[in-house]
Nucleic acid binder design. Sequence first.
RNA 1: GCACCCGUAGUUCAAUGGAUAGAAUAUCGGAUUCCGGUUCCGAAGAUGCGAGUUCGAUUCUCGCCGGGUGUACCA
Length: 596
Amino acid sequence: MNLEKELQLLIIEAIAKLYNAEVNESQITLQKTKKEFTGNYTLVTFPLLRISKKSPEQTAQEIGETLTANSAFIESFNVIKGFLNLSLSSSSWVKTLEEINNNPTYGFTQANEDSPLYMVEYSSPNTNKPLHLGHVRNNLLGHSLCEILKANGKKVVKTNIVNDRGIHICKSMLAWKKWGNNETPESSNKKGDHLIGDYYVMFDQKYKGELAELESKGLSKDEAEAQSTLMAEAREMLLKWEKNDTETVNLWKMMNNWVYKGFDETYKEMGVTFDKIYYESDTYLVGRKRVLEGLEKGLFYKKEDNSIWADLSAQNLDHKLLLRADGTSVYMTQDIGTAKLRFDDYPIDTMIYVVGNEQNHHFTVLSALLDMMGYDFGKGLVHFSYGMVELPEGKMKSREGTVVDADDLMKEMIETARETSNELGKLDNCTPQEASDIVRMVGLGALKYFILKVDPRKNMTFNPEESIDFNGHTGPFIQYTHARIQSVLRKAAELNIEIPAVIGEIELSDKEEGLVHTLVDFASIIKQSAEEYNVSLVANYVYDLVKEYNQFYHDFSILREENQALRYFRLMLSKNVALTIKKGMCLLGIDVPDRM
RNA sequence: GCACCCGUAGUUCAAUGGAUAGAAUAUCGGAUUCCGGUUCCGAAGAUGCGAGUUCGAUUCUCGCCGGGUGUACCA
């Protein structure tokens, strides 16, 4: 039985008895007592004044008296202003810890056949360039969100939509064809996605060169763009691709496969996976068909130039283009098709899109459009919208070459972790294999934790140096604390500490009670995190737990404690703190080493 | 122009409408060191501005100021 729920019921009972009134759980505001006051739980009495018709102090006093009189598990109380601070007895905390200890999956709910199915789309790369820092936040958030949903007993399908068609990939293809000399990932010893990215950049440079030349001949910018032969060739290539021209399609397939192989390596290093991958080259046709159907049904309208539009003014939105005059599709068309396909493929209860907040408008429109087209899932789409990542030196701009590449970043983080660890002499007693595993966990853990601890909705600044600090609010600090607890537990095992017959009678300090209390909170944190789609709650919880444990660790002897029962309790507490850290970090996709 | 989001210590982040707005880092001063050095305690330091709603506002409403994003036949 959940401690907080139990307490809530007791309070409801007390109010019924005192004031002859029925209150529901939502009227009971229970919170953790702030550490400068005595107590474990605090009842805020202000909302109850209408029922008691008495002053806050008096109400608190009366409820406190009734509770202590009728329940053994509330030991004492104090009243400060309108706040009723309740202290539970040591024995109930001991009992609570034992319950958590006996339930290794505490906080987690297993999915069953009837559980709702969530499909989560994340990552969604373009095939013309490698993943960058923005994708890193996306991937980490998406992966962690999935883990948290699973921990809450949901069925989850992780999906990725690959933007594999369009003018952008044609640019890379054209550049490669013109200037590539049949270069391959093998021949150049580059990852496929980086190779393609280089050709994309090359196209852009040559194109700019061409424009500059045209403009120097006295043409305006618009005229130059219109006369560019390079861009014309790229467009021609796209038309050929859409007409299924064999040579073009084969080139496209070959180059895309290079990219996918490169992406796979990046995903693997990052630790993210997908259950089902959709490609826009498959879905855009479905979308197109649905749009044409909608036109027949009179949902959409056609302009003189044959382009097709939706009028969303009834929903307070603008008119939206769905098919161009030449019949080709736009982003929105593809997303309609993708959504339709997905709901055909799976019995989805909730569809979540992990996509940056610059697309907030796009998803409102998508939702409205699908609804207009008669799909009942349209309204229920969830856009998990996250903010941009900036660097201490400012915003990333692809044009200025200040984009941080995901592969480079991970490599650098691991390298920094290695340097720092070597300086501190941490890896001296490890085999090379152990050392390399540990620096990998630390480097990536630093990156992941730093990004995930921030509220997803907000823009953030990523500072690589700060993130890898072994002190402070960082991943490595949490990992370190976990490793140290493991070390204590190993030592305890060597000492062969016996389990006492009875441990219920020991007297606990506030710090110990508070620590058990925090362990209890784990369950509600992951629940809240899933309900609000807010990954950072778990990250911040784990840090709070670590900090609290460190204070406890500093204040009490664990191995030298003479009272058998107390020592056993403290070891059990340590063990469960370690387990909870591990579970929490696992929800964030972060590995924690047993020694470091 | 219009729409949406964001303004919290020097800096990076917290705070279901609740108590004296928490951490981290940087600075200064102490303590501890079972197992492990990276532990702990203290000092100093913040809600952009102005109204309103109420027992109570960082949080809700309105108006300014500052920043971001969107409003594309780019994805």
